[in-house]
């Protein structure tokens, strides 16, 4: 429907306009939102991997690689230049993603998840133990870099970080959506439903997963670099498994069926975290837990799925990604559970 898609485009434009105008109108540097933009990046990485049905419980390692990279490079260059630092962070996390990826893409499901966790814990303890290099648990200070050669005051720096994060996120969301719509992206989704057939089509499932893995590592690395730049410090906590779990949590909260889930999830998560912390003190984890429980029970497709349903109802169109139950129960429809990957046939 033309009106439907142009309405959607208009909404997107309004959202973009609000995001761009926010620091100007509010007069604040929007640091809450900067964190949202930055943290949506690793979540997007998790969503990419989830397309293949794989969950990483270790992506905080790349988050840390990004943050420590700008720490180290910045220190070596006495502050450094933001653009250069971000490029370095992307490059370092790409390398790390390739290194770890070549190994983990050979595994699936629980083994994939746990191997990622194991790698991240190795990095975590290295960051803690090699005090002379990393600063140990005190962390590594990240000095304020110049931006395109200009030294910045604090407020100005934060405003620019806001826009840089927003721009990187917008690009990443667009690129992610394009990728998922490409032959590679579809092959990635195909791994989830039938890896055997993927191979029987002449496609290397491992290679496809590796591409997605490296992309997800770069996204996590950029997110870590931005959060590091905002907070002015990188600590071993950046690589801690709780943070890895948080990325997965936020992905499920936002909805794993669409790249926008990363943004929606990150926004709601940070919002609950900051407001619950203000109102109910240190029980904010409980609030989050209840929210996640509700999402899993009542809106398994996350916030984005919920929004799509609502949108469908409002416009009368069908924005549903799932068939309605009555369709699924049509007489010629087979059972909907996926068939086992048994291809040998065997006795019948």
């Amino acid at each position: 429907m033309a009106t439907n898609s142009s309405l959607r485009l208009a909404l997107l434009a309004v959202a973009a306009l609000v995001a761009v105008a926010y620091p100007i109108v509010s007069g604040s540097s929007g640091s809450f939102l900067t964190i949202v933009w930055a943290k949506a990046l690793p979540v997007l990485g998790i969503i990419l991997l989830l397309q293949a049905g794989q969950v990483s419980f270790g992506h905080a390692m790349f988050f840390a690689v990004g943050a420590y990279t700008i720490g180290f490079v910045g220190r070596a260059m006495a502050g450094g230049e933001l653009v250069l630092l971000l490029v370095a962070a992307a490059f370092a996390s790409l390398l790390a993603g390739l290194l770890v990826g070549v190994f983990v893409v050979r595994y699936r499901y629980i083994f994939f998840g746990m191997l990622n966790l194991a790698f991240s814990m190795v990095l975590f303890s290295m960051l803690e133990k090699f005090i002379h290099v990393t600063g140990g648990s005190d962390g590594l200070r990240i000095a304020r870099p110049t931006i395109l050669g200009e030294a910045m005051g604090r407020a100005q720096y934060e405003t620019i970080l806001y826009y840089v994060s927003l721009a990187i996120l917008a690009l990443a969301l667009y690129g992610g959506a394009r990728f998922l719509d490409s032959p590679l992206g579809h092959a990635l989704k195909a791994i989830k439903s039938n890896e055997t057939r993927v191979e029987y089509l002449g496609i290397s499932a491992r290679l496809v997963l590796l591409v997605a893995y490296v992309a997800s590592a770069v996204l996590a690395g950029l997110g870590g670099a931005l959060v590091g730049a905002i907070q002015g410090i990188a600590t071993p906590d950046y690589a801690y498994w709780v943070r890895s779990g948080e990325f997965v949590f936020v992905a499920i909260l936002g909805g794993t069926g669409h790249v926008a889930g990363a943004l929606a999830g990150a926004f709601v998560y940070e919002f609950i975290r900051s407001s619950a912390a203000a109102y109910v003190g240190d029980t904010w984890q409980m609030t989050l837990g209840i929210v996640l429980l509700a999402v899993i029970l009542f809106a398994p497709r996350g916030i984005v799925g919920m929004a799509a349903d609502l949108w469908g109802r409002l416009t009368g169109g069908s924005a549903r990604a799932e068939p309605a139950p009555e369709e699924a129960d049509a007489p010629d429809a087979p059972a909907r559970e996926p068939r086992p990957l048994r291809i040998v046939g065997g006795g019948r």
């Binding site: 039938n194 057939r197 089509l201 990957l341 046939g345």
Partner: peptide, 21 residues
């Protein structure tokens, strides 16, 4: 013998993946 398809993708997408490969 037992069809091996990508059940969550459309029939056309199934075919396009093969053709792209």
């Amino acid at each position: 013998q037992i069809p091996q398809l990508f059940l969550e993708q459309s029939v056309r997408e199934n075919m396009l993946i093969a053709a792209a490969s």
